[in-house]
């Protein structure tokens, strides 16, 4: 029987489907018996989703705030190379 600590250690491998069959069975047995680890699994997955959501805006095109000075600097850098 896995401990909660071992469950947490193997969590990413489980989500990435990289565990051997025997390990995966042990992992899933632990899930059935341990509500805190069910919450840990759910909030770990939610953390990954939130990271993406909060760093990359999905609600439309990227902000059209490219500073003209930067665009001109890039164009100038090409001319002098």
């Amino acid at each position: 029987m896995l401990t909660c600590r071992e469950f947490a250690d193997f969590l990413m491998a489980y989500l990435d489907e990289e565990l051997e069959d025997v390990q995966r069975d042990e992992f899933e047995q632990h899930i059935e018996l341990c509500p805190p680890c069910v919450h840990y699994l759910a909030t770990y997955a939610e953390t990954v989703r939130l990271g993406k959501q909060c760093c990359v805006s999905d609600d439309g095109p990227p902000p059209a705030d490219a500073p003209e000075t930067l665009v001109q600097a890039i164009l100038a850098a090409r001319r002098v190379r």
Binding site: T3, C4, R5, E6, A8, P36, C37, H39, Y40, A42, T43, E46
Partner: peptide, 17 residues
């Protein structure tokens, strides 16, 4: 990182968000 008791249980068990 999460903290653990000697028996492998979480020092602060996870709860739903």
């Amino acid at each position: 990182l999460p903290r653990w008791q000697e028996d492998g249980h979480a020092a602060r068990p996870a709860a739903p968000w």
